[in-house]
Design a protein around this nucleic acid. Structure first.
Length: 536
RNA sequence: GUCCCCGUAGCUCAACGGAUAGAGCGUUUGCUUGCGGAGCAAAAGGUUGGGUGUUCGAAUCACCCCGGGGACACCA
């Protein structure tokens, strides 16, 4: 990774240069000029002559130049390009991987939707992002656990049980009303029907309490299973499903209450128990135990954070919808109060996915039964397309989703452009193998680069650098954009340079380019969780 | 009232404070023998919502407006 070497050597920032300014560039002269009040160009001269003294370093480049306002531009040497190209073939599916993570344990929690209904599009965004980030960090040498927090306690789940119970009573010919606060989606009726068919309830129909309990347990199990199915169909698999009830059963929630009490971090008011969050950076205090005796979500969050830490994770990443923005501040206040290492917790918020129907925005609501499910979408639009749609965007962008438009546009999605480039490369490789052409490391003849070849190699060897950066800033969409760029370079190369049937040595050389292209596309798409067709 | 995110080409979105603001879709025009045309080449399309600052340099940072989304519960 030449970029890293320049960075080390200079001790300043280095970036990929815009077209026409070499391969890498640094603004160090401008920065130094500001600090020392010297002219950028003279500062640049000094740096430049220093760099040139280091023979080993300057051998990496065909040219190092000082440009206009005060940039140093680096042009990669031909041999470096050729060596790195061989590196791609040598490392194959490991190309781009690293050991920087040093096996540090990372927990990534994502999706974590309540088991009270199907997954929504927003959950899909979380799923696509979490899965990809996990794969990337793994590739970079971390030991990643993908985790799903299952809220199997509390009011929403109780409400779910009651909803199913009421539908169940209806099915059994009992007169019951169905209040507005019940879950309105059709899937509730489906669950109630299965509940009846399975004969899962053995008690009396008049014992409403017992019915609710039984229906709740049944519904949570059914829905959890279908959540797993939906995610599997979307190509996402969590390593750990962590039920909230486990925290309660192991007394971890009570332990927090106890500790807060001892350390004078909580107090009673209006029959409820409050956490003194205002002592830890918040505007107000927060309820952790309601006057009806039930503990709040926040308390579980505290216990859960502590639990994760206890399991030995070095870093805990939460992927949350932007509607949890305020929760983040509350959780952090709790971390401070409990003296847990705040820097090990990282909260990533993605902006919400809103639904557009016939030009109108519709607020999705699970309770009101008004949403598009991930399953519905994936039935109409291939999972690869949906993932690309999410992963090409920054987490900070709102997504307005129009199902009709998505269906219509699906076959124009850029993901096909990338897959097509891959298929073309595979096709050439197949053909070459068929007629016995092999790639070779040592070529007896070195050809000058064709423009499209050079651009392609340079793009290919950026891959490890892009991954390293993305692993730092978690901006997965940068990786997505890179792969799209790369596909463009590949298609241009394909269009202009004949591979099979070219002059003997040249044929071999271009074949290495083809092979390297296939490798990088494969590695990149795999990290995004997008599939690689052999044929289309 | 406080806090978070966004406003960039007709549309959907990119752009570590850097050099000429880029892709895809859509529009217009070309490209058969060469390996898959789901491609390639080119054109048109922009006062980066508006303003004031900060500095060598601002789509990016600060402040003020305008517009959109979200959060500020004994909801989850």
């Amino acid at each position: 990774m030449v970029k890293l070497e320049i960075k080390k050597k200079l001790g300043g920032e280095v970036s990929f240069a815009p077209v026409g300014f070499g391969d890498y560039s640094s603004n160090l002269p401008l920065v130094l000029a500001g600090e020392k009040q010297a002219s950028p160009m003279s500062a640049g001269e000094e740096i430049l002559s220093d760099l040139k003294k280091d023979k080993k370093f300057s051998k990496l480049f065909s040219k190092i130049e000082l440009a206009k306002p005060g940039f140093i531009n680096f042009y990669l040497a031909d041999e470096v390009l050729r060596e790195e190209l061989q590196e791609v073939l040598k490392k194959g599916e490991k190309y781009g991987s690293a050991k920087n993570g040093k096996g540090r344990k990372i927990n990534i929690e994502f999706v974590s939707a309540n088991p009270t209904g199907p997954l929504t599009l927003g959950n899909g965004r979380s799923a696509a992002y979490g899965e990809s980030l996990a794969r990337l960090l793994n590739f970079l040498g971390h030991k990643v656990t993908k985790e799903y927090f299952l809220n199997d306690l509390g009011r929403q789940v109780a409400l779910l049980g009651e909803s199913v119970a009421r539908r169940f009573l209806e099915l059994n010919g009992r007169q019951t009303d169905y209040p507005e606060e019940m879950y309105q989606g059709e899937y509730i009726l489906d669950i109630a029907k299965k509940f009846k068919e399975d004969g899962a309830y053995h008690g009396s129909l008049d014992d409403f309490e017992s019915l609710i309990k039984s229906a709740q347990k049944y519904a949570v199990e059914k829905i959890t299973a279908s959540l797993k199915d939906s995610l599997a169909r979307f190509g996402v698999k969590h390593d750990v499903w962590f039920p909230e009830s486990e925290l309660e059963n192991h007394g971890e929630i009570d332990k927090i209450l106890h500790d807060f009490n001892i350390n004078n971090l909580s107090y009673e008011k209006d029959g409820a128990l409050w956490f003194k969050s205002s002592d830890f950076g918040l505007d107000s205090d927060a309820v952790i135990k309601k006057s009806n005796g039930f503990t709040t979500y926040l308390l579980s969050d505290f216990a859960y954070a502590k639990n994760k830490l206890k399991r030995g994770f070095d870093k805990m990443i939460y992927i949350l919808g932007a509607d949890h923005h305020a929760d983040v501040a509350r959780i952090k206040s709790g971390l401070r109060a409990m003296k847990l290492p705040e820097e090990k917790f990282r909260f990533l918020l993605y902006q919400l996915v809103t639904l557009v129907e016939k030009g109108e925005q519709v607020r999705m609501s699970k309770r009101a039964g008004r949403f598009v499910t991930l399953d519905e979408l994936v039935k109409e639009v291939p999972a690869d397309v949906v993932k690309f749609f999410f992963l090409a965007k920054s987490m900070d962008s709102h997504v307005e989703f129009d199902l009709d438009l998505a269906k219509e546009e699906s076959n124009k999605n850029p993901v096909y452009y990338i897959q097509y480039a891959f298929v073309r490369m595979q096709s050439i490789l197949r053909k070459a193998k068929g007629i016995g052409i092999k790639t070779e490391k040592k070529l007896s003849k070195v050809y000058p680069w064709k423009e499209e070849e050079e651009e392609l190699v340079k793009e290919l060897i950026k891959f490890p650098e892009i991954l390293a950066e993305t692993g730092e800033n978690y901006q997965i969409h940068h990786l997505t954009a890179y792969i799209l760029d790369l596909a463009g370079k590949i298609n241009r190369f394909y269009e202009t340079q004949k591979v099979i049937g070219a002059e003997k040595e040249l044929e071999k050389f271009r074949l290495t380019l083809v092979q390297a292209s296939a490798i990088v596309l494969r590695n990149g798409l795999t990290l995004l969780g997008i599939s690689l067709p052999e044929k289309m």
